[in-house]
């Protein structure tokens, strides 16, 4: 098997396996560790797509920042294992899986409706994924959305502090 196919299969199957691990673990910490592994696998997939800047960002932002926050909250709340679902919830579980299977089938049909099997990565893909090209696009063509997103992050910061702090007397 050629190296690039092997890498794709490794990261793709790894991503799916760790995703299944995340939604099936009863212990929240085990789920979080699975999710961190999932983010690393996705970063690997981004590398096979030659998007190296976003692969690094994926690890820094998701595995680094967001998951630290999640694990911190799990530890803070001192959560144990999720106790077994009550009887009425097994129905919900089965229904959820069936609905998701139908949903996956729909996506599969849509993907197959217009086969793109002959479409391969564009020749300039490697040049697109660098920090230089992303920075150039971000600070010229997409400057306004960039500023807007910084405002949104500020609002999220203020909102999080107000929500999480104890009530004032």
């Amino acid at each position: 098997m050629p190296l690039h196919v092997a890498l794709f299969l490794l990261f793709g199957i790894g991503a799916i396996a760790t995703a299944i691990g995340t939604v099936t673990r009863r212990n929240p910490v085990a789920a979080a560790v699975n999710l961190i592994a999932h983010f690393f696998m996705l970063a690997g997939l981004y590398l096979t797509l030659q998007a190296q800047f976003l692969a690094v960002l994926q690890i820094l932002v998701y595995a680094g920042a967001i998951m630290v926050l999640v694990v911190f909250v799990i530890m803070l709340l001192n959560l144990g294992n999720e106790e077994a679902l009550r009887e009425q919830f097994t129905l919900r579980k089965v229904l959820g899986v069936v609905l998701a299977a139908i949903f996956l089938l729909q996506i599969g049909v849509l993907v197959n409706a217009r086969p793109t099997g002959a479409l391969y990565q564009s020749p300039q893909a490697a040049a697109l994924g660098t920090a230089e090209s992303i920075g150039r696009a971000l600070f010229t063509q997409y400057l306004f959305p960039f500023e807007a997103i910084s405002l949104l992050l500020l609002a999220a910061l203020v909102g999080a502090i107000i929500l999480a702090k104890r009530k004032v007397e």
Binding site: F8, G12, A19, L45, A100, F103, L104, G117, A118, Q121
Partner: peptide, 21 residues
């Protein structure tokens, strides 16, 4: 690396999204 078709990535993404659902 360029010779992996687009469909494979789309199917992996579809499976991941469904697992999230």
């Amino acid at each position: 690396i360029q010779t992996i078709p687009l469909d494979w990535y789309l199917l992996v993404a579809a499976v991941l999204f469904t697992i999230g659902v």
